[in-house]
Amino acid sequence: MSSQLVVFSAMSIVAVLSAVGVIVSRNAVRAALALVVNFIVLGVLYFTMNLELLGISQVLVYTGLIMMLFLFCILLLNLGAPQMLEETSGLKRYVAVLLSLVLIVLVLTQVLGPVAFSGAPGSESALAGIPTAPDGYGTAKSVGTEIFTNWIYALEICSVLLLLGIVGSILLAKRRG
């Protein structure tokens, strides 16, 4: 077991534990903070894959923007202790855990198995470790060049979507009358 694999395992354990913390904590603020930990660990994992720009924007966008929106929403809703929703119990919980276990097993056997253990193209590199990144793989320059040349239409559609999102959320937040 290489030292990099040890570091990766430690980070993925933190990621999985914080993800579990999101769904076991009954307090919404604690769930949000656990999710922040998860997002930061994922950002660090992006850095380990030479994805500098996406690692930074993961931390900025998710923990800076999205989780701030969540915390504002929790603050505004003011869900105190009497309003804390008791969880569903009994049969539904067991069925849900069973379903997610089935999902994990399905994904692991159907996606990971062929990738790792068959003679499919790329399977030899799947077990061998990471290939060398090309020059400037995750830098802002290469990502920006790619966005503004080959993906320009997707970018324009995305900007229209964000504009619609702004207008829609203003309309939803506006009080009637």
Partner: peptide, 10 residues
Amino acid sequence: MEGVPLSAYL
């Protein structure tokens, strides 16, 4: 991370 296989991330 050179020693980590693709399967770990997946």
